[in-house]
Simulated scan of single mutants.
Amino acid sequence: MSKVEIYTKFTCGYCFRAKALLENKNVSFKETDISMGGKDREEMIQRSGGRMTVPQIFIDDRHIGGSDDLDALDRSGELDALLAS
């Protein structure tokens, strides 16, 4: 199973949506809450190529993007292949 990481904020609806999609697929993930900023937020910005919005999702250290990007991968059928590797 792939390593999935997601940077979130507590009050983010898009974060809840992305996590729900992953949970419905029975995918475990590491969640990093950046609500308070700090080094985790800086790490997210660096890893995502400068993106500052949440969620930011990574599968096996590959930057996937946000919730809409995750949904698009799921609709195209590519997400399951990424998660299975």
Rank of each mutant, 00 (worst) to 15 (best):
D61G: 06
G38M: 13
R17I: 06
T8W: 06
R62T: 10
L70W: 02
F16R: 15
G77C: 11
R17K: 15
I34W: 11
L79M: 08
A81P: 00
R41S: 04
E42V: 06
V27Q: 06
K25L: 15
G50M: 05
M44W: 06
F29V: 02
F29D: 07
E5A: 04
Y7R: 02
S48E: 06
L22H: 11
K3A: 13
F16M: 12
V27N: 01
D33G: 10
E42S: 14
T11L: 12
L70D: 01
G38V: 09
R62S: 11
D74F: 14
G13Y: 13
G37E: 07
L79C: 07
I64Y: 03
G77N: 09
E78F: 08
I6R: 02
R75V: 14
T8F: 05
P55Q: 04
F16N: 12
T32F: 09
Y7F: 14
F16V: 14
C15E: 07
Y7G: 02
G37H: 05
V27H: 04
K25Q: 12
F58I: 03
M1K: 10
K39Q: 14
C12V: 02
D71L: 09
L83M: 11
G49H: 05
G49W: 01
L79E: 09
L70T: 01
G37P: 05
K9E: 13
F29Q: 03
I45F: 05
T11I: 07
D80M: 13
E23M: 12
G38K: 10
T8R: 04
S76H: 06
E42D: 15
Q46P: 00
M44K: 06
M44N: 07
I57K: 03
L79F: 08
C12M: 01
E31S: 13
I64K: 03
Y7Q: 03
I6Q: 04
I64Q: 03
D74H: 15
G50L: 08
S2T: 12
D74E: 14
R51M: 11
L70E: 02
L21N: 05
A20D: 13
F29G: 03
S67K: 03
R41I: 00
D69C: 04
I57T: 03
E78G: 13
A18Q: 09
G13F: 13
F58R: 06
R62A: 07
L22F: 12
K30P: 00
S28E: 15
A20P: 00
P55S: 05
K9G: 01
H63E: 10
A18W: 09
I6S: 02
A81F: 13
D71I: 10
G13I: 11
K39D: 15
A72P: 00
H63L: 04
I45R: 06
M36H: 12
K3M: 13
F16G: 01
I6E: 02
A20C: 01
E78H: 12
G65V: 02
Y7L: 02
L21F: 04
